[in-house]
């Protein structure tokens, strides 16, 4: 594939993105604006994540792509094929073998290591967006650490539902400073945001990059009398029997039968392979 530069983007663009990534790593949780490029896929399909991945890839890397935990769904397959074609890097479905993992809406169950980079696709990077429509105002609120409004949202949840009903994109405070949207991962994954791996977040349409460096403190917001609860369905996985993984509910017929299976396909397949 000589028609493309390595990993699709030209070197100047990669430089620009890497600068944004470095700034993001230096100021954990801060949304760094960057000049997002048109990518050969629609907005909402992970253009931000793809650009961050492209800027991080080296020819020696092994890439894994996850879509809602699965390696075999449309979004994951197409992005994996894209980089196979434009970068010629090795790809894998095994979490442990990957050096760069691009993910949509999940963090792998297997604990990540210092040698790995986790790249998130982010639709709306601004955690305050649905509370305060003005970008000018939200930037000011971040600058002044004016986060009372975030708790108003959680208050409303409890007042209306009797508990904090936010189940995904649950807001976190990074290193005691910035409130951050962890992308729409289930709140079950929030504790895993404190990780040994470098975590990068790319929002293509919104033109923002932010980062959580390894071992950064990430606290899920809550109330003293309504503490954060990383809940999941109270079932074991129907395929591998795992009790500790996040589950998808799958409807199996028109009569209402359903089964709960691991959302992380690699984790589930690995456990079944081990004869667990």
């Amino acid at each position: 594939m000589n028609a493309y530069n390595f990993a699709y983007l030209d070197e100047q663009t990669k430089r620009m993105i890497r600068r944004a990534i470095l700034k993001g790593v230096a100021v954990p949780g801060y949304q760094v604006p960057f000049a997002s490029r048109e990518m050969p896929m629609p907005y909402g399909w992970g253009t931000g994540g793809v650009q961050v991945t492209a800027a991080c890839l080296t020819p020696e890397d092994t890439l894994k792509v996850i879509d809602q935990g699965a390696d075999d769904t449309t979004n994951a397959v197409s992005i994996r094929k894209f980089f196979e074609k434009t970068a010629g890097v090795a790809v894998t479905e095994k979490t442990g073998e990957a050096t760069i993992i691009q993910t949509r809406h999940r963090i792998p169950e297997q604990t990540l290591t210092e040698d790995q980079i986790l790249v998130y696709q982010v639709p709306i990077p601004e955690p305050l967006r649905f509370l305060e429509p003005s970008e000018v105002e939200t930037r000011k609120m971040h600058a002044l650490e004016d986060y009372g409004l975030m708790h108003v949202k959680l208050y409303e949840d409890i007042a209306r539902h009797g508990e904090i009903a936010t189940a995904y994109a649950y807001p976190v405070k990074v290193e005691g400073r910035y409130v951050m949207d962890p992308s729409p991962i289930p709140k079950f994954d929030n504790p895993k945001l404190e990780s040994a791996a470098l975590q990068l977040f790319g929002a293509g349409r919104e033109q923002r990059i932010y980062a959580v460096p390894p071992y950064t403190k990430v606290v899920s917001l809550d109330f003293d009398d309504y503490p954060f609860d990383p809940s999941k369905p109270a079932h074991p996985c129907a395929l591998c029997g795992a009790e500790d993984s996040y589950l998808d509910e799958v409807i199996t017929d028109d009569a209402g039968s359903r089964m709960f299976v691991c959302s992380d396909t690699d984790y589930c397949a690995g456990r079944r392979g081990d004869g667990a």
Binding site: G148, L149, V152, Y155, E156, I158, A159, F223, D224, D225
Partner: peptide
């Protein structure tokens, strides 16, 4: 309730 509580939460009240 949220309207009245906003100022309290803005100055650090975190007990529902």
């Amino acid at each position: 309730g949220g309207n009245v509580g906003e100022r309290l939460m803005a100055v650090g009240a975190h007990h529902y």
